[in-house]
Nucleic acid binder design. Structure first.
Lengths: 256, 256
DNA sequence: CGCGATTTGTGCACGTCTTCACAAGCGCCT
DNA sequence: AGGCGCTTGTGAAGACGTGCACAAATCGCG
């Protein structure tokens, strides 16, 4: 039953690199595990149990074990997981063994901040290019990088082997930029503009919309307010007990 | 038992103000519908069919109808939804009828950008306070707001009725700030720091981690690369057909 | 060398979310 | 008035994700 070859373990023999096709939910959690593991490694831990790691991340330990089992991970029963090995495995699966080049389009308010954000380098990415359509911004130097005109994207993409495009433009320009990115072969886009992008099949788009996050919080705030406004209900089937609704995406009340 | 006052139900008859407890997945989509509806309203549309709206947002139309039905929405069969009415309904449910005050803690790189982001005002929020622990940043004026020291948070929270706290500090300071926010009564937190926050029950935390988003994209990039690198497989049960995995969270390949 | 403590990996049941498909309702046109 | 086309709202089925609970595996110790 057990596969003897490691999927493509970092330093091992030239086995098949076949990536197991992980559930999306698992993929979304792997980066969190990775971050926690780095912290643990820095703190000197050599091994960690699923219980310990799950506590650090704030997830159910069974879920964590299942996630790790999906990538054929090697934990040791009775002991736990080897922290360094697990880091290697997750980084491999996430494709972080190569430092991917990111092109950032739109050096306005937000783009400026992203360009200066130092949290990327340590996590497997390199901002390789800054681009903007506004001629008055072209030429500006941010964090050692010079802003170039967006028209130069084809040249830049080729020279730097851009793997991921980040859109931090106003909404009105986002679709145009996305088309441009796609045209030069970028197949992964992170979109900060508040709009829906349409892209051809095979191109992945993730979006981050700050206002949406706030609005979701606002809903819960509204809801909590409407609950506490109610008098203490005896047995009314209408209102669940105040803490009775579980938070799915939102992390809530993680015990120390 | 039945509350007769309606907190602000849109102009209609005295319906029950009780917030239906929507599925989390629905709550997360409502803001997207709202944004699309505003666009449609600006474009002059008075009504919109579920098909049309779902196309604009990039979701399945049945899903959209079910989402809207959850909030007891009034669509008209054979016609569609009244755009203005639907906007009102969604804004009410999301608690956007009152402009909520947001406190932003951490005016570094990212915080600076968030403070200057003008996309909040139009979406129901007001940045009411900027705070930082670094004395050298206190006193700086950004977008008409003066940065105050984080120790002043209690006074600020009371004066401004802060409803939501945004943490844009380094990871090391995030937990401390979260504790502070909770202490002054904030029950909704948006966390940009790359770390897990533990908060008491009843406090909602949403997080945005830019590096995680990139890492998820990196996985898909890695995966796509490993697929195209394979020779055309005949019937190997290992590799699914290239387009065979559906994108759940990630939007992918929206037609036209 | 065997035993107990510990921890992984997973079968199973449950809940949530998604999608299809269709009846019910509405307006318009004849 | 009646019928027809369009659109909503929803029942039901399937896919997906989660969490419990336990067997299998490993280590350390006497």
């Amino acid at each position: 039953m057990s596969q003897h070859r490691h999927p493509g373990a970092p330093g091992s023999a030239g086995a098949v690199p076949a990536l197991p096709d992980l559930p999306e939910a698992t993929v979304a959690r792997l980066p969190e595990y990775l971050r926690a593991l780095h912290n643990l490694a820095d703190a000197g831990h050599e091994t960690i149990s699923s219980e310990g790691l799950s506590a650090a991340v704030g997830v159910n330990s069974a879920k964590l074990r299942k996630d790790l089992s999906h990538l054929g991970s090697y934990g040791t029963r009775g002991v736990g997981y080897d922290v360094a090995l697990l880091i290697e495995q997750i980084e491999y699966v996430l494709g972080l063994t190569q430092r991917r080049a990111v092109a950032l389009v739109g050096v306005g308010n937000l783009g400026h901040a992203l360009a200066g954000y130092d949290g990327f380098a340590g996590r497997g990415f390199r901002i390789a290019a800054l681009l903007d359509a506004d001629p008055s911004r072209v030429g500006e130097e941010i964090n050692g990088l010079v802003v170039r005109h967006v028209d130069e994207l084809p040249a830049v993409a080729e020279a730097e082997s851009i793997a991921i495009g980040v859109i931090a433009t106003p909404a009105a320009a986002a679709q145009r930029v996305a088309d441009l990115l796609v045209a030069v072969g970028v197949t992964s886009i992170l979109n900060f503009a508040p709009c829906v992008l349409s892209v051809p099949e095979g191109v992945d788009v993730r979006k981050v919309d700050l206002a949406i996050e706030l609005q979701i919080l606002s809903f819960h705030e509204h809801r909590k307010a409407s609950l506490t406004a109610l008098p203490a209900t005896g047995g009314s089937a209408l209102t669940a007990l105040p803490g009775g609704f579980a938070a799915t995406d939102t992390q809530e009340a993680i015990g120390t």
